[in-house]
Nucleic acid binder design. Structure first.
Length: 556
RNA sequence: GCCCCCGUAGCUCAGCGGAUAGAGUACCGGCCUCCGAAGCCGGGUGCGUGGGUUCGAGUCCCGCCGGGGGCACCA
C-alpha cells in the first residue's frame, strides 16, 4: 500500500537526517500515516515531528522541515510539505494516481487483497447459540459480523475456517429434552406439564409434532419415565437444521459444525486437557467437585470443571474445545465472538489458555454488546424462555438479507444496538445498502450501453482523468485496502459499510459531474478513459459489497 | 457492592491522541431535451458532566450521572 511506502520514506528520511546530524539521534517511534480530513492538507500526512519535539528538544516545525528536506520523492509522491504546527503533508502525483485505474482493472476480483496473514490459519467461531430454540435478532448480528470478518481475514491472506460450536450437552439440553418429551406426550393425550424452567415457545410443539409424524409413538415410554435419548438427539438435530437454514438465509455458512459432545468421546481433547491441567497443578478437588485453580493465575475465584454429580461443566468443555483448536488443530489464531452475556467467561477462559501454555495473542474474544429489540420504540424482551420471541427468520424475511446484514454491520460491536422492527421494516426500502447497490447497477448499465454502442475502451488512456471528481473516485478506491487492514487489526468490520457509503457517494458525485459516454465524436478519448475508471469503480464497489456478504446487482 | 461496554445532530450511527467533528435518515428549497432522479446540489443543530495528563482530548486517566451486560456445580 502507498501508505506503507510513505511511512518507509519518512523513516528513511529521518535516519538520513540523523546520520547527517540534521536531527538528534533519538529513537524513532512508529511512523503513523493518516489521511487528512481537508484536501488542502494533501492525501496523506504524518504528525511525526510533533511527536518527536519533546525527545529532540526542538520546535516541531523545524523537525518537520529537516525531515522534509531529506525525503526522496518517488513517482507516486509528488510533494512533501511542512504545515504548522509541524505536520508533513504528502500529495500523490497525478500521473501515479491515474495509473492506479489500470492496476485496479488488472487486479480485478483480487483488488485490495493484502498479505497480512499469509501462511496463517485463523479460526472464527461465532453465533454458536444453544440448539434449544430458534435464533433471535441478536444472533443475526453475530452472524453478519462474524461472516464479514471471515471474508476480510481471507482477503488479507489468512486461511480462515468458520465454525459453529454446538452445545449439544449440559443442563439446557436436558431441559430441552424434558420440554420436548412433555410436548410429545401431550400430543398423545397425556396430561403432562412442561417443566418450570423449560421452553414454553410454540416451536417446541412443532418439533414434537414433526417427531410424531415421522416416528409415531416410537418414543413413548410408560408414564413417569424420562425422555428417551434418541428423541433428544433427533430434536437437537431438527433445531440445528432450522438454525443452519436461518443463518444461510442471511448469507452465513459455516465450514464446520463442531459438537461439544465430540470432545467427550474416549481419548479426546477433554481427557487430554484434564490430565494436562492436573499434571501441571491447576486442578484441585473440593466440595465433591473438581476445580480449575484460576486463583493461582490471578483470577478472583476458582471454577468448577466437573460437577459433584460427575458431569463436566461448559467451562471444562470449552477448555477442551480451545485446546482442540489451538493445539490439536493448530490454528495460529482463534477468534471467538461472544455476546456480552458471556463476558464473565472471558477471564477464566484466558486463564485456562495460559495454563495450557498457549501464547495469549493467539486467542481473541470479541465481546459484542447485545441487541435491544424494539417495536415502535417499545422494548421487546427476547428470551427463549418466553413464548413471545421474534425470530431472526421473521426479521430477515421482512427486511431482506442485504438490508439486514448492512444494518447489523453498521454499528461497532462494542456498542449496544437498538433494533426497532417498525423502523427496520420502514427503512428496508430506504436502507443505505440500496444506495451502494444502486451505484453498482448504474455502472453496470453504463458499461452495457458502451457495449451496445460498440465502444472498445481497452485502449483508454487514464492519464486523461484530470477532473477533480475523477481523481476523488480513484483516491476513494485506493482506500479499500487500508480499510481492510484496519478491520483485520481491530476485528471491527463496521468500517466497511461506512466506507461503502463513502465510495458510492464519490461515484454518484462523479457521475453527476462527468459524462461518461458522450455522443460527441471528439469526446471519444475521454469516454474511453472514463469507461476504464467506471469499470475500476465497479470492481471496488463489488468487492466492498461482496466482503459484506451482499449482492452487487447489475440492475435493480 | 465489584467488573465490562456504551453515552457524539430530532432518529440510527462513524470518528486509528492531531489541523475547521462527519455520514445515513428526517425536514425545507433547487436540479432530468445524450449514460438509471433508488441520484445530485444547497440549508443546522451535537461530543452526558466535573477534574486531570498532553504542544494538542470526542478519543487517554480519575470522579459523578444515565443506559446495557456480567459476578452459578446455566451456557
Amino acid at each position: 500500500m502507498i501508505k506503507d511506502d510513505i511511512s518507509r520514506i519518512v523513516s528513511e528520511a529521518v535516519r538520513r537526517a540523523q546520520s547527517e546530524g540534521a536531527l538528534p539521534a533519538v529513537a524513532l517511534p512508529e511512523v503513523a500515516i493518516e489521511r487528512p480530513q481537508r484536501p488542502e492538507h494533501g492525501d496523506y500526512a504524518t504528525s511525526l515531528a510533533l511527536r518527536l519535539a519533546r525527545a529532540m528538544r526542538s520546535q516541531p516545525v523545524d523537525i518537520a522541515g529537516a525531515i522534509a528536506n531529506h525525503i526522496e520523492l518517488t513517482d507516486a509522491i509528488s510533494s512533501a510539505e511542512v504545515a504548522p504546527p509541524g505536520f508533513i503533508n504528502f500529495r500523490l502525483s497525478q500521473d501515479w494516481l491515474t495509473r492506479q485505474v489500470e492496476t485496479v482493472l488488472a487486479e480485478g476480483e483480487t483488488f485490495s487483497d493484502l498479505n497480512l496473514g499469509v501462511g496463517q490459519k485463523a479460526q472464527l467461531e461465532y453465533v454458536s447459540a444453544n440448539p434449544v430454540g430458534p435464533l433471535h435478532v441478536g444472533n443475526g448480528r453475530w452472524g453478519a459480523i462474524g461472516s464479514t470478518l471471515a471474508n476480510v481475514l481471507k482477503a488479507v491472506g489468512y486461511g480462515v475456517e468458520q465454525e459453529y460450536y454446538v452445545n449439544d450437552m449440559g443442563t439446557q439440553i436436558d431441559t430441552f429434552a424434558t420440554t420436548l418429551y412433555a410436548r410429545y406426550q401431550q400430543l398423545f393425550g397425556r396430561d403432562i406439564a412442561i417443566p418450570e424452567e423449560g421452553y414454553p415457545g410454540a416451536y417446541m410443539i412443532d418439533v414434537a409434532e414433526a417427531i410424531r409424524s415421522e416416528h409415531g409413538d416410537a418414543f413413548l415410554r410408560p408414564p413417569g419415565e424420562l425422555a428417551p435419548r434418541e428423541m433428544r438427539d433427533i430434536g437437537v438435530e431438527k433445531m440445528l437444521t432450522s438454525i443452519a437454514a436461518d443463518l444461510a438465509s442471511m448469507g452465513v455458512v459455516y465450514d464446520r459444525w463442531f459438537r461439544e459432545s465430540s470432545l467427550h468421546v474416549a481419548s479426546s481433547a477433554y481427557q487430554v486437557v484434564l490430565q494436562k491441567l492436573r499434571a501441571d497443578g491447576f486442578v484441585t478437588e473440593k466440595e465433591g467437585a473438581v476445580w480449575f485453580t484460576s486463583t493461582a493465575l490471578g483470577e478472583d475465584k476458582d471454577n468448577v470443571l466437573i460437577r459433584s454429580n460427575g458431569s463436566p461443566t461448559y467451562f471444562a468443555s470449552d477448555i477442551a474445545y480451545h485446546y482442540n483448536k489451538l493445539v490439536e488443530r493448530g490454528f495460529q489464531r482463534v477468534i471467538d465472538i461472544w455476546g456480552a452475556d458471556h463476558q464473565g467467561h472471558v477471564p477464566r477462559m484466558r486463564a485456562a489458555i495460559a495454563a495450557l501454555g498457549v501464547e495469549r495473542e493467539r486467542f481473541d474474544v470479541l465481546i459484542g454488546q447485545l441487541v435491544t429489540l424494539k417495536r415502535g420504540g417499545e422494548v421487546v424482551r427476547i428470551s427463549k424462555r418466553s413464548g413471545d420471541i421474534i425470530t431472526l427468520r421473521e426479521v430477515v424475511e421482512e427486511v431482506g438479507t442485504d438490508a439486514c446484514r448492512f444494518f447489523f454491520l453498521t454499528s461497532s460491536p462494542n456498542a449496544t444496538m437498538d433494533f426497532d422492527l417498525e423502523l427496520a421494516k420502514k427503512q428496508s426500502a430506504e436502507n443505505p445498502v440500496y444506495y451502494v447497490q444502486y451505484g453498482h447497477a448504474r455502472i453496470a448499465s453504463i458499461l452495457t450501453l458502451a457495449q451496445e454502442r460498440g465502444i472498445d475502451w481497452a485502449d483508454g488512456d487514464p492519464s486523461l482523468l484530470v477532473h477533480e471528481a475523477e481523481q476523488a473516485l480513484i483516491r476513494k478506491m485506493l482506500e479499500l485496502p487500508e480499510i481492510l487492514e484496519t478491520i483485520a487489526r481491530s476485528l471491527e468490520p463496521h468500517h466497511l459499510p461506512h466506507y461503502a457509503i463513502a465510495l458510492a457517494t464519490t461515484f454518484h458525485d462523479f457521475y453527476e459531474k462527468c459524462r461518461v459516454i458522450s455522443s460527441e465524436p471528439g469526446d471519444l478519448p475521454i469516454t474511453k478513459a472514463r469507461l476504464k475508471l467506471v469499470a475500476a469503480a465497479k470492481i471496488a464497489l463489488a468487492r466492498t459489497l461482496g466482503l459484506m456478504g451482499m449482492a452487487a446487482p447489475e440492475r435493480m
